[in-house]
Nucleic acid binder design. Structure first.
Lengths: 127, 127
DNA sequence: CCGCATCCAACGAGATACTG
DNA sequence: CAGTATCTCGTTGGATGCGG
């Protein structure tokens, strides 16, 4: 996809000019990729406490999720470098999940999103 | 938000995490609902320029999207009060899409997300 | 207790063609 | 130009059962 010059000049004064729509869109797609799925954000939110949580802890915290989805999303986020997986070779087995530093750095951004969601006006307003 | 410190039927017993994950989870799910889909964020990003864009403008800006998806996501966001739809009864027809004030207020949060994505370290570190 | 594999249902999403 | 309708397909997600 070659770069056509868009009119979508998202170029506020404070932002670098390299924030072109296509780069931005790529970034957007990266974000979408990493946060896609019905459960990623929910899992993340339970991890934002900063403590390591066991698999069963997460299962208990999110009753609506299936094991498959839980492990799947967890693994994907681990691959993305968002969550950590700590295996204790014990009997019975014990695996704890937590956030990487980068994953923790997501917290304020998500919080902004949450606040945005809560700020929804009941009045369908105009731009 | 009033003091909704009650449990919602989750975790019948004992030891919920310290920071109210349930209230938060609800908010998270709202966000997920409103921003889900492969194209919402991309469309939003093209709308953040602040100018009204025609349907065909968006089609041109996002070549990979189909008309069906474009109109669908647009309508959903309109229902959610994120985007505006301005119909000019002319020949040929002309419909312009833009952001509501609330939709525009999403910009910084998304920007934070973008910056987070760009800040991904090559080194998968531990917390 | 943790995780994987398989089967299966339900949407999401794309292509195409048609209408106002 | 803007939007709708229909069909199909791939993916996501859920249920269950087994293995370390």
């Amino acid at each position: 996809m070659a770069s056509t010059h868009e009119k979508v000049g998202y170029a506020p004064e404070g932002k670098p000019p390299e924030h072109t729509p296509f780069t931005a869109a790529s970034g957007v797609e990266s974000v979408v990729r990493m946060l896609e799925g019905r459960w990623k954000l929910v899992i993340l939110f339970h991890l934002f406490g900063g403590k390591l949580l066991r698999f069963s802890d997460l299962e208990r915290a999110i009753p609506a999720i299936s094991q498959k989805m839980l492990i799947q999303q967890l693994r994907q986020m681990e691959s993305d470098g968002i969550v950590t997986r700590l295996v204790h070779h014990q009997v019975p087995p014990k695996v704890e999940y937590g956030l990487t530093a980068w994953g923790q750095s997501l917290c304020p951004a998500l919080d902004a999103l949450l606040q945005w969601a809560e700020a929804r006006p009941a009045d369908p307003d105009a731009p």
